[in-house]
Amino acid sequence: MTLTQSPVATADEQLTEALLSGTPCPPVRDVLGDDLVSAYTVQELGIQRRTERGARRVGRKVGLTSPAVQKQLGVDQPDFGVLLDEMQVPADGIVTGHRLIAPRVEAEIAFILAEDIDDPDPETVRRAVDYAASALEIVDSRISNWDIGIVDTVADNASSGLFVIGEQRVKLSEFVPADVTMTLTRNGEEASRGNGAACLGDPLNALVWVAQTAADLGRPLRAGEIILSGALGPMIPFLPNEPIEATITGLGTVRAVLNQEKP
């Protein structure tokens, strides 16, 4: 950091270089301290830079929805990141040509909105949902060795990477998000298991939280947006040529594979 460069500018520079080069950087908490407001400022700077290069905002992702992870990072609330169109993998789940550093994968429920949410409350948020679908989030960290705290992951766009949305569309009247069960397999063998209650007690709670937070920050949720509501079970490494499949009761399956040549 130069004498004239702010901590926010330094953190933004480090994360941008890591994203573009595929080479991780040291934790940005080293320059930002515990300033969560500055971390969200860094996140927004990174998103603005990507949209200036042609990316389009398509939704939000909620992170830190597990009480165990919150305890580990010393926080008492979730965080969120921004989804861009360039992050979405086609429904076939084949991931190619992306510069990933240390990807991991987790299964969650995606909510797609039919209405804007300007004044969020639980009933308004529920009415705004067009449909739900199964989803895989491929998380990644631009921070070396996943050595992250809350400030690091927020600044790094909530450790976002890529995401896949399953093809089955289900109305909220047809299932109860809190009651779903999830099984995640790798190469056909079970690697993770969970349920709807693992996501803030109910994935709809995560949707309400991000709707309220987004409105408070002046970027309310809009019709057509995709909301990844948070992991239903433990995440696992996303390794080359090892197909991943998640089955969520009532929502069907969603698949992903990192299509790379083995060394």
Rank of each mutant, 00 (worst) to 15 (best):
V125Y: 13
R127A: 10
L136A: 05
A132T: 15
G149F: 11
A133K: 11
I138C: 05
R126Y: 07
A128T: 02
D140V: 02
A135E: 11
A128C: 09
R126P: 13
A128M: 09
W146Q: 13
Q168K: 10
L162H: 13
N145P: 11
I148S: 07
A133I: 10
I138F: 15
R169V: 12
D156Q: 03
I138K: 04
A132G: 12
I148H: 09
D147I: 00
T153R: 04
V125S: 08
D130W: 03
R142L: 13
I143V: 12
V170I: 13
I148V: 15
V170Y: 00
V154P: 04
I165Y: 05
I150L: 06
G161R: 01
S144W: 04
S159N: 14
L172E: 07
E167S: 14
Q168S: 05
Y131G: 10
F163R: 00
D147V: 02
A128H: 07
I165W: 01
D156T: 01
Y131V: 10
L172I: 13
V125G: 07
G161V: 05
D147C: 01
V139W: 13
V139S: 02
I165F: 06
N157C: 02
I138T: 15
I148K: 06
R142T: 08
W146V: 12
V154K: 02
D147N: 15
A132W: 03
D130L: 09
G149R: 02
V154L: 07
R169A: 08
V151Q: 12
D152A: 02
S173H: 08
S173A: 14
